[in-house]
């Protein structure tokens, strides 16, 4: 997780500075916006596991997010289950959904754009299902009863919500770093770089990819539950919508896919940019996505390794012996 260059240190410092600034600028708008950005950062970190480290470009990560959110919401609203159990159920449901999609798509050897299209299809199918059945609230969605308290995972003080979200993001990033430096991480990266060579070196590529999808699904499901507990209301177009799938991949791609800090840096940067544009150029809805598209195209053209990859080349730190940890 440590930066390897001046450039990366500056980027990470900027992200941390921004995150800390929220505590001191007592602005509700700033706070609401930052809460949202942090939830999206968790989805971005989820996408980063498969898309960044595994090179499996999903275009439907909303499927994990929505499944986590709905699993928890259905349990809480329909069965009166405790929100903490809902949280665990959301994470598990996301992981199972991820593993399921992985198991069938990889069994048939799908990769590249075919994999992207199938994940998109899964997200759409789930969106339609969620808006069709009565137990998921149909088109009206599900609303969790307002009842602040630790046992219900609802917090009236947004500073508390924000602090907890920060801790969750930190935890997911630490897990990402642990994964990256493990045997599993090395295998996943090897698959991204060259799947045939990985197979020849004794890697059960199918198994590794399915596990990666499960981990990604767990993170994605977690993000969905975080959204639910923050907003207390979900419907199918919000949590299974394409917007989430796009946000999941755009942050890591711009920040630096396959790095620990990239998804967070990219998501925060983009949200700041989108929010700024909204205020400057009237409040046209969807304008932020136009801007994202322009930024994404520029990033893919000029920063193929994302901001973290670009920053790695600015003032590299001298490498010490036995210290080969690059962010």
């Amino acid at each position: 997780m440590k930066p390897t260059s001046m450039g990366q240190a500056v980027l990470i410092a900027a992200a941390v500075l921004y995150l800390v600034s929220v505590f001191f600028l007592s602005s509700p708008i700033w706070m609401g916006f930052s809460l949202n950005a942090l939830i999206i950062a968790v989805v971005a970190l989820s996408w980063n596991v498969t898309g960044g480290f595994g090179g499996l470009f999903s275009f439907g990560h909303a499927v994990m997010y929505g499944t986590g959110a709905y699993a928890s919401a259905v349990l809480q609203v329909n069965y009166g289950v405790n929100a903490w159990i809902g949280l665990v159920a959301g994470i598990v449901a996301g992981a199972v959904m991820g593993a399921f999609i992985g198991a069938i798509t990889f069994r048939f050897g799908l990769k590249g754009s075919y994999f992207a299209l199938v994940t998109l299809a899964f997200a759409e199918v789930m969106r339609i299902c969620a808006s069709s059945f009565a137990f998921t609230g149909g088109g009206a969605g599900l609303q969790v009863k307002l009842d602040p308290g630790i046992s219900t995972l609802q917090f009236q003080d947004r500073t508390v919500s924000y602090t907890l979200l920060l801790l969750v993001v930190a935890a997911v990033m630490i897990l990402t770093a642990v994964m990256k430096n493990s045997r599993f991480g090395a295998y996943l990266i090897a698959i991204r770089e060259n799947e045939d060579a990985a197979r020849a070196l004794g890697i059960d590529t199918y198994r590794i990819k399915v596990i990666a999808m499960a981990i990604s699904g767990a993170f994605g499901g977690l993000a969905g539950v975080l959204y639910l507990q923050t907003m207390l209301y979900i419907d199918s177009t919000v949590v299974y919508g394409n917007a989430i799938s796009v946000e999941a991949l755009i942050g890591p791609l711009i920040g630096g896919a396959g790095t620990v800090w990239g998804p967070l840096v990219g998501t925060l940067g983009l949200h700041l940019l989108g929010e700024g544009a909204k205020h400057l150029l009237s409040n046209a809805p969807g304008l932020n996505f136009v801007l994202y598209a322009v930024v994404l195209i520029c990033a893919l053209r000029f920063l193929p390794q994302g901001l973290m990859g670009f920053a790695a080349r600015i003032g590299p730190f001298r490498k010490k012996e036995e210290d080969d940890d690059n962010a």
Binding site: I189, A190, R192, E193, N194, D196, A197, A198, R199, A200, L201, G202, I203, D204, T205
Partner: peptide, 22 residues
């Protein structure tokens, strides 16, 4: 292949296949 590799036999490729980014 991974089962065969675990038993102690491995192949290399005619067209070299490095993990280029590593």
């Amino acid at each position: 292949p991974h089962q065969i590799c675990a038993r102690g036999m491995i192949r290399t490729f005619q067209i070299v296949q490095p993990f280029a980014g590593l």
